[in-house]
Design a protein around this nucleic acid. Structure first.
Lengths: 215, 215, 215, 215
DNA sequence: CATGAATGAGCCTTCATTCAT
DNA sequence: TATGAATGAAGGCTCATTCAT
């Protein structure tokens, strides 16, 4: 009898934590981390401030958990999306499609405010970078793979190694994301990214070069 | 006699303001805007809080002034450098040289920590965006001008307008700068920028394309 | 068991609020609203400033509650006294008796200093007028009712409507109260009020007029 | 030569003081004393804060001067107006006309905010009452005189002495003024005062009583 | 007489966090 | 697990007043 109670209590506890978690996410998406108070979160979650501290060590700890989850989730999603693409697809299209997906995920799942928080954290020397540092690692690997294949298939031509190129693509994505963060909502993330990555690709795409010369 | 007195008090006032200004800059460089209190600034400047409000309408107003000064200073320097370049220089080289100069200015005059502060500020929702939006305007104009000329001289070929292209070059610079800020000191800003901008140029440089095809 | 605990904490909270409330009242009685700081209140109440804001949204909100309580208490007491009066009593006497009672309540239950505080508050532009405006509403209704009945019973004769007349009686009471507040203790509130209201009644009392004419 | 200079300086000084004075008056009329800052006054007067303290010991001192001047001016104006009325005018009309004039003076020359300040001061035990206390003295004398004459001419009939009656009329005026202060701008001071004083007069006017009985 | 920079005490309010229950 | 009262440090800002010039 006691056990059952314990289980139920635990379940309820987990439920409550999830609730808080979800509300925090919603609020962080709408406003800056610093402007979202614990009270606002607990009010939305329908619990008291005390409860918050039962489940989270601090506001910072919550943010950390949140971001770790994001990074993990994003990375997994990039990857599974990438792996789902048909092998015969043109490498340039693969890159453009993946980029599109990445932006879609950021826009829909993270939201601008959250991304902003991540970027701000990276610029704050104080904050534990470890968590956030992992961010982009998967993206880098994917780009590298695609580029490598593209070169092998002679779709791409370049003097740079796939590793170096991949780094620059990731940098471009990061730069665009930064732009999105500071220009939101007056920035069409998807379109600008397509164009920008398109530009980078133009320099290495065999087909484009061929086309230009024919003309 | 009266004038001199007046001048002297005025001078002192300006001095104090500068002092506050300088301390604020130092502190904002080290920490986030929101975490720097007016009191911290005035303590460092050796004045009272009241004095702060003699010279600045609010904490926000100070930040605004600070950022405007940054933007203005940088913009002026880009420009005077650009105007000093010989007209007959190849457009691609002009771009690469200007980019080099921009990086040099940032590295030598502002420093990474300072730039970091600017970027952090831009990510703080507190700051009125209007001012920040002006940032890079000069850079943008310069790129636009070079690209336009390059197209006219048939050094560049592209389906995009010079305006759009310029925007993307500026974005690239910004992205690289962000990268520099978060990777410092493990990031060779100059080299990475040259390579990155080089990649972007590759897609529009007539000479490169020609070379590739010949081979 | 859980409930009792909850109740106890709640009780303590209510207790604290009351304590703050009482101290605020005391201080507002002694000095102007603007000159009483939240800190002064909390110091007196033996709590911290933070606690204040647990129980009251703002200093203004506290004042509002305070005033509403005053108004409500007084109004209830007027009313129950009035309703206890015999129906057959002469209307002029009813008015004079009610006025007597009103003065008695003010004198004995509120006290001059308190009334002073209320009047000072009403003169402070800070306070939201809506609440204050309600003040005297009950008194007004009572006067109106008596006057109406008096006219119907032909004890009173006047060209003015009971509503208008009632308003003027209320104003007279308020004026007298103000006088009491600033002249205390050199002002025989009860006597002066009787005389003053008597004068106002003289103009509408049929019996008085009749008497005068006979003579 | 020195003297002339001194004179000129003095003149200018007086001018400046007047200027500050006038601006303070304007601002106090528009807003509460506590909400009008020294800076606001000096800004409007086009002088610096330092100058303010050359001419006035403190903000309070300025208010005091202002009020003393008001009281004096008002009293003088009541009086000269009253003395200008034709001797043969009916006493009731004299009272009504004088009351009208009093209200006019308050409305046009003092303004509601100023009056409010006076009334608040009277309710503040701390403030030096001496100055404000004189307020109304002249008014009382005028009423007394009119009432006395009215009784002598058998226009008024009452069991009360002119002194006592006069006191009640003054109280009524004060009450109405208080009402004006707290109800402004939703209070038609002139009309309400006419009506109210009319009511008081009704009880002592021989003509009115006569009229009623005839009907 | 006039300036205006500087003061410093004070104000209201916020908020992450603790803790007894 | 959940509550909610209490904390206390901090924060941005105001303003009457002083004083050297």
């Amino acid at each position: 009898m006691e056990k059952r109670k314990n289980n139920r209590t635990k379940e309820q506890g987990a439920e409550t934590k999830k609730q808080i978690y979800a509300c925090a996410e919603k609020l962080f998406r709408a406003d800056d981390y610093q402007n979202v108070s614990v009270e606002a979160i607990t009010n939305m979650a329908g619990v008291t401030k005390g409860t918050f501290y039962v489940h989270f060590e601090s506001k910072d700890a919550l943010l950390l958990e949140l971001m770790m989850a994001y990074v993990k989730r994003m990375d997994m999603q990039y990857n599974s999306f990438f792996e789902g693409l048909p092998d015969e697809m043109a490498s340039a299209d693969v890159i453009l499609t993946v980029v599109d997906k990445i932006i879609e995920l950021m826009t829909d799942q993270l939201g601008c405010q959250n991304m902003r928080a991540v970027y701000r954290m990276q610029l704050s020397s104080t904050v534990k970078m470890e968590v956030v540092k992992g961010y982009g690692r998967k993206m880098y690997k994917i780009f590298q793979e695609i580029l490598e294949r593209g070169v092998q298939r002679q779709e791409f031509i370049t003097k740079l190694s796939p590793e170096v190129l991949a780094r620059h693509f990731v940098m471009a994505i990061r730069g665009l994301t930064y732009e999105w963060c500071i220009r939101y909502p007056d920035f069409d993330f998807k379109q600008e990214a397509s164009m920008h990555i398109g530009l980078l690709l133009d320099g290495i795409r065999v087909d484009k070069i061929y086309n230009l010369v024919i003309k």
